[in-house]
Amino acid sequence: MLDTFRRTCDQHEHPASVLTDNGMVYTVRFAGRRGGRNHLEHELHRLGIVQKNGRPNHPTTQGKVERFQQTMKKWLRAQPDQPTTVHELQALLDTFTEHYNHHRPHRSLPHRQTPATAYQATPKARPSTTAREHDSHDRLRRDKIDKTGCVTLRIAGKLRHIGIGRPHAGTHVLLLIHDHDVRIINAATGEILRELTIDLTRDLTRDYQPRGTNTQK
Rank of each mutant, 00 (worst) to 15 (best):
L47A: 07
K52A: 10
P59A: 02
T60P: 03
T60M: 11
Q62T: 07
K64H: 06
Q69K: 07
Q69R: 05
Q70S: 00
K73Q: 06
K74Y: 03
L76A: 03
A78R: 06
A78I: 08
Q82F: 09
H87C: 02
Q90K: 11
A91Q: 10
T95L: 03
T97S: 12
E98Y: 09
H99A: 02
N101L: 03
H103D: 02
R104Q: 04
R104W: 09
P105A: 01
H106D: 01
R107P: 08
L109I: 12
P110W: 00
H111P: 12
H111W: 07
Q113Y: 00
P115M: 12
P115A: 10
A116K: 07
A116N: 02
T117V: 10
Y119W: 15
Y119Q: 10
A121I: 06
P123N: 07
A125K: 14
A125V: 10
A125W: 06
R126G: 00
S128E: 04
S128M: 10
T129L: 15
T130G: 01
T130H: 04
R132Y: 01
E133V: 11
H134N: 14
D135T: 07
H137E: 07
D138W: 11
D138G: 00
L140R: 03
D143S: 15
D143A: 15
K144C: 12
I145V: 15
I145D: 02
D146C: 14
G149C: 11
C150P: 00
V151H: 00
R154K: 15
R154E: 13
A156C: 13
K158I: 15
L159V: 15
G163M: 01
G163W: 00
I164M: 05
G165Q: 08
A169K: 13
A169G: 08
A169C: 10
T171R: 13
H172Q: 12
H172M: 09
